[in-house]
């Protein structure tokens, strides 16, 4: 596994980009920016980690909200007794364990059953937490009082994004990444080639779940008051899927291309047509599905190839 020179330059360019982005909270008028940049960064991290698993395997996971909620409550419940960084690690471990259990139970099933199960998972976890609060916890874990501002949350998300890109890149280059691409292509072929199909899928799902749980933990201080309906909001799972698909899941940077335009279009709609957000968003989705089914990154890649080929020669 040798590093190509182009990879090295790419890595340096990405590091430079992150370095520049890290200064954003110090820019003038940053408060206004941050309240839109924090969700963008959050969705980028969630959608990218989602695509690491769901992109190559084509298993659509709607469990993001379940992992996110577990992370949020890990932080809320532990904040009084444990230091903050430890809680982030615990959240990551819990997310991975949960993903392993769910993956072990369901990833042998075919895609449709998996989708339904993961959708139910958020509701199941939410009920378990509610049961806990109702019978033992009382209001414990409902309040998160910290001094963390949007800037702190943004920096943490940025660091996590860098980590996710690194992990995603490493996976792509590894035997696991190769195996998972074969599985995505044809599962039977993969099995016959001696690939441990279930194990490969579970490992990737654990990466994805663990990242979502950490994001939940990082975001918890932003909301001060945590309710199950908010922490386990199924809408989050759908938003992540939509953004990842809008951006395209073929490349690691695809979901980023989805999260940014999505957030800006949403902002336009919300500030100009505050009463019609849901309607206009639905129309926007229809247009996306009909006109750019391969995602924005797919379109960009095609442009790139077109530009490199001789004029007049079409690849379509």
């Amino acid at each position: 596994m040798k590093l190509k020179q182009s990879d090295l330059w790419m890595g340096l360019a990405i590091l430079a980009a992150f370095f520049v982005l890290a200064w954003l909270p110090l820019a003038p008028g940053a408060d206004g920016w941050l309240s839109i940049v924090v969700p963008i960064t959050m969705y980028t991290v969630l959608a990218t980690s989602w695509a690491i698993f769901s992109g190559p395997t084509h298993y659509v996971s709607l469990a993001t909200a379940a992992f996110f909620g577990v992370g949020s409550y890990t932080l809320a419940l532990g904040l009084e007794s444990l230091p903050y960084p430890v809680l982030l690690i615990i959240a990551a471990i819990l997310g991975a364990i949960m993903a392993a259990l769910v993956g072990w139970a369901t990833l042998r099933l075919s895609g449709v059953y998996f989708v339904i199960f993961t959708l139910g998972l958020a509701e199941l976890t939410r009920q378990v937490f509610t049961w806990y609060q109702n019978n033992m916890g009382g209001t414990r874990g409902s309040y998160v009082f910290t001094d963390l501002t949007d800037a702190h949350i943004y920096w943490q998300l940025l660091a996590l994004a860098l980590l996710v890109y690194l992990v995603g890149w490493l996976i792509n280059r590894s035997r696991l990444g190769f195996a998972i691409r074969i599985i995505g292509g044809d599962e039977s072929v993969a099995k016959h080639s001696g690939i441990n199909v279930a194990w490969s899928k579970i490992v990737l799902f654990m990466v994805s779940g663990s990242v979502a749980a950490v994001v939940g933990a990082i975001l918890a201080p932003r909301f001060v008051y945590i309710e199950p309906s908010m922490a386990f909001n199924p809408q989050l799972s759908f938003m992540v899927v939509i953004m990842a698909l809008l951006g395209g899941t073929q490349r690691l940077w695809g979901p980023l291309m989805g999260a940014i335009p999505f957030a800006f279009v949403w902002e336009i709609i919300a500030s100009n047509f505050p009463a019609q957000t849901t309607l206009l968003m639905g129309v926007a989705f229809l247009l996306v599905v009909f006109y750019i089914p391969n995602g924005i990154s797919g379109v960009l890649i095609r442009w790139y190839h077109k530009a490199r080929s001789k004029p007049g020669v079409s690849h379509e």
């Binding site: 206004g32 309240s35 969700p39 909301f223 909001n233 809408q235 902002e267 500030s271 957000t277």
Partner: peptide, 13 residues
Amino acid sequence: RTNPTETIRAVQR
């Protein structure tokens, strides 16, 4: 939309 993320954004806006 009964969503705290949106509320935060709306107040900020």
